[in-house]
């Protein structure tokens, strides 16, 4: 199985084919519905985003609270399709890598193909298992959103399957 360092460079993105499994290590940011809504709102108003999304990896997750002494709680993916209203815009602004679960819209697939991005799926409903692959977590934006805040996570050997590759090939 391929092991991949985050952020993924353009060359590596191009080598990944739909259906291929891989293990990711490095830093990424999280974001789900409300963060996407705010990112898109800021972009449309020409405002600066609170985090850099260029070349970034975004993971659609809202974790459970960490117990004392733990890095993070349960942290599996949420349904990606709900981000489709915002993803093409974020991809256009430089976001390259998305991690979630389930299928994507035609528009998101087209944006991935056009801008040479990639969409990974990970294990929906395996939040306890995936929590063991996260080695650090901190809130970096929108703390008032609670579980929907934007975190920076560092992951080690985080399992994914390439669901949509840079050619727009889709496993679903």
């Amino acid at each position: 199985m391929k092991t991949i360092q985050l952020p993924i460079d353009e060359k590596t993105i191009k080598t990944l084919k739909a259906g291929e499994m891989a293990l990711l290590s490095g830093k990424l940011i999280t974001g789900r519905d409300q963060a996407h809504l705010r990112f898109a709102g800021a972009i449309k108003k020409g405002k600066k985003l609170p985090v850099n999304i260029k070349g970034q990896t975004i993971y659609y997750v809202g974790p459970t609270p960490a117990k004392a002494g733990e890095v993070i709680g349960s942290c599996g993916p949420t349904t990606s399709r709900r981000m489709d209203a915002f993803s093409p815009l974020l991809i256009k602004k430089g976001l390259t890598t998305m991690i979630g679960k389930g299928g994507r819209s035609k528009e998101t697939i087209a944006a991935i193909k056009k801008h040479k991005g990639i969409y990974f799926m990970t294990l929906g409903g395996a939040g306890a298992y995936l929590s063991k692959r996260v080695i650090s977590a901190k809130v970096i934006a929108y703390p008032e959103l609670g579980p929907e805040a934007v975190f920076e996570l560092e992951v080690r050997d985080f399992p994914v399957i390439t669901a949509i590759d840079s050619k727009g090939k889709n496993i679903f």
């Binding site: 997750v61 809202g62 974790p63 459970t64 117990k67 733990e70 709680g73 349960s74 942290c75 599996g76 949420t78 294990l123 409903g125 395996a126 939040g127 306890a128 298992y129 929590s131 063991k132 579980p147």
Partner: peptide, 17 residues
Amino acid sequence: ENCAIAKSEKIPLCQDT
């Protein structure tokens, strides 16, 4: 394996509780 970890380490099975 996720079920086993959740039970033994008391971590919710899924983040959407």
